[in-house]
Design a protein around this nucleic acid. Structure first.
Length: 420
RNA sequence: GGAGAGGUGGCAGAGUGGUUGAAUGCGCCGCUCUCGAAAAGCGGUAUACCGCAAGGUAUCGAGGGUUCAAAUCCCUCCCUCUCCGCCA
C-alpha cells in the first residue's frame, strides 16, 4: 500500500517514480481528488455525529415533553446521518480500491525499461562451463537415469506437472539440508508454514489484486482458500497486525514450502521439462527490518544467494530488474540468472526484493518508536528454488558419459544417492 | 462433521440498553519519601483518522441489523477452548 499522506504532500515525486513501472499517473490525480472530497464528507459526518452524541448524553437527563421532542429530532438527524455515512463509505471503498492498484514506487537506482529485455546485468561471476562434447539438456539426462516421470504426471494432473524420481529426490533433500543448515547457522529462524491462505493474506502481501490469474483458488464456494505461489506470503503474515520490537530487527526467517503457480499466459514457454512448472518446493528467506536498514538488508540477502550459487558451482549473473519488469510490491529487485548449457543462456534461479513499507502497510506490521508505531520494511529472497536448481545442477554437472557429478557442498548430504 | 463455551485496553478481569473509551488489579512511566533501593503514597499510562488549532470522530474479534441511543439485543462470518466422531 502506498502512503496516502506522502502522496498528498508530494504527488509529483510519486508520479515520477511510478512512471518507471509504466504506471499511468492520471490514477494518482483521481486518488487525490477523491481523497479531498472524502475528507470534506468526513468532516460533515463527524460534525453530525458530534451533535448526535451530545443529544444522546442529554436525553437520559430529560423527561416528559422535552425528552419526546429531542427524540423526535433525533429521528431526523439519524436519517441525514445515514445518507452522509453512505456517501462516505462509497468514497472510502472507491479510494481503497484505487490505492490497492497503485504499486510500490521504485527506488532511484532501478533502471528505466519496459520489460525484461531492459534489465541490467550488474555483474557476472564464474566461468562458462566448457564441455568437450555436446551437453545434453536436463530431460535427456533425466531419461538416461530415470529421474523424471512426465507422462504419467501429465495424464494424472495435466501439463507442467512431474514426478521426481530416484537420485533427483535425494538431491532435492540434500539441497534443502545444505541451504537450511547454512541459513540457520546465520541466525535465520526456520519455518514450515501453511500454504493455503485466506484472501486477505494475498492482498496484504501485494499479490492481489494484480496477480490474481496466477494463483490457484481452492473451493471458492466453500473453503475459499488460495494456494501460495511462494513462502513469502505466510512469512510476511507471521507478523501481520503486530507491533514488533525494534530490538528484534533484522528479524530473519527461512521457510520451506511447496509453491503453486498457474503459469497463466505462459503458453508455449518452457513447455519441456521442469523449467516452468505448476508446483515446486522452495526455501525462501524473509526479513523484517528498520526502514533505514532495508537497503543494507537487501544486499545481505543477495549476498547469501550469491554464496549459494557459487558453492553450487554455477556461472551466474546478477540482474538489476528494470521498472517495467518489477512486480507491484517490490521497490527494487535483483535476480540471479544461471548459465544453462543446453540453452546457451542465463536463466532466472532466484529473485530478491526490497518491498520497503509496501507490504507492511497492507499487513499492518509496525515497530515501536518514541514517536509512536512506524511501519517496518520487508524483504524477501529465494534461498533455493528446487526444480530450476535441480535442472541447473544436472546440466552443469554432466559428464561425457552422461553421469552427473554433484558439487562438493552437497556431497555430505548425498550419502544415500547412487555413485553415478 | 456433531454438541457446548467463549473472544473487552500491554496482561488479567468487571461490565446485559443511556453523562462507559470502558471499574478493579498487575505491569509500565513520572513525582513524593530515601544516602540509595525496596515498600508506601500521589499522578499518568490504547490506537487510528480529520482539523492550523481548539477540538472532534471511530474502535470492546470482523461485518451487517434493531434503537433517538449498542461492549450490552438480533443475524452472518472468523478465531480460541472443551467433549464426541474421523484422520497422517
Amino acid at each position: 500500500m502506498i502512503d496516502l499522506k506522502a502522496l498528498r504532500e508530494n504527488p509529483e515525486d510519486s508520479k515520477a517514480r511510478l512512471s518507471k513501472k509504466n504506471f499511468d499517473s492520471s490514477l494518482i490525480d483521481n486518488v487525490l481528488a477523491l481523497d479531498k472530497e472524502k475528507r470534506g464528507l468526513l468532516q460533515e459526518v463527524e460534525q453530525l455525529q458530534a451533535h448526535r452524541n451530545a443529544v444522546s448524553k442529554l436525553i437520559p437527563t430529560l423527561s416528559g415533553d422535552e425528552r419526546e421532542r429531542q427524540i423526535g429530532e433525533m429521528h431526523v438527524v439519524k436519517e441525514s446521518l445515514a445518507e452522509l455515512e453512505g456517501k462516505l463509505a462509497a468514497h472510502d471503498a472507491e479510494l481503497h480500491n484505487l490505492l490497492l492498484m497503485i504499486p510500490n514506487p521504485p527506488v532511484d537506482d532501478v533502471p528505466f525499461g519496459k520489460d525484461e529485455t531492459e534489465n541490467v546485468v550488474v555483474r557476472t561471476v564464474g566461468e562458462k562451463p566448457v564441455f568437450n562434447f555436446k551437453p545434453k539438456d536436463h530431460m535427456e539426462l533425466a531419461a538416461q537415469h530415470d529421474l523424471i516421470e512426465g507422462e504419467a504426471a501429465a495424464a494424472m494432473s495435466g501439463s507442467r506437472f512431474y514426478y521426481l524420481k530416484n537420485d533427483l529426490v535425494l538431491w532435492e533433500f540434500a539441497l534443502v539440508q545444505f541451504v537450511l543448515n547454512k541459513l540457520v547457522s546465520k541466525g535465520f529462524t526456520p519455518i514450515l508454514p501453511p500454504v493455503l491462505v485466506k484472501e486477505p493474506a494475498m492482498f496484504a502481501t501485494g499479490f492481489f489484486p494484480a496477480d490474481r490469474s496466477d494463483i490457484y483458488h481452492v473451493n471458492p464456494e466453500d473453503d475459499d482458500l488460495y494456494l501460495v505461489g511462494t513462502g513469502e506470503v505466510p512469512l510476511c503474515m507471521l507478523h501481520a497486525d503486530t507491533i514488533m520490537d525494534e530490538g528484534q530487527f533484522p528479524k530473519r526467517y527461512v521457510a520451506f514450502s511447496t509453491c503453486f503457480r498457474r503459469e497463466a499466459g505462459s503458453y508455449g514457454k518452457d513447455t519441456q521439462g521442469i523449467m516452468r512448472v505448476h508446483q515446486f518446493d522452495k526455501l525462501e528467506m524473509f526479513s523484517f527490518c528498520h526502514p533505514d536498514k532495508s537497503e543494507e538488508e537487501h544486499k545481505f540477502l543477495l549476498s547469501i544467494e550469491e554464496e549459494i550459487m557459487s558453492e553450487l558451482g554455477f556461472h551466474y549473473q546478477v540482474v538489476n530488474i528494470c521498472g517495467g519488469d518489477l512486480g507491484a510490491p517490490a521497490a527494487q529487485k535483483f535476480d540471479i540468472e544461471v548459465w544453462i548449457p543446453s540453452q546457451e543462456r542465463f536463466r532466472e534461479l532466484t529473485s530478491c526484493s526490497n518491498c520497503t513499507d509496501f507490504q507492511a502497510r497492507r499487513s499492518n506490521i509496525r515497530y515501536k518508536t518514541e514517536a509512536g508505531p512506524q511501519f517496518a520494511h520487508t524483504l524477501n529472497g529465494t534461498a533455493v528454488a528446487m526444480s530450476r536448481t535441480l535442472l541447473a545442477l544436472m546440466e552443469n554437472g554432466q559428464q561425457e558419459d552422461g553421469t552427473i557429478v554433484p558439487p562438493d557442498c552437497l556431497k555430505p548430504y548425498l550419502f544415500g544417492a547412487s555413485k553415478k
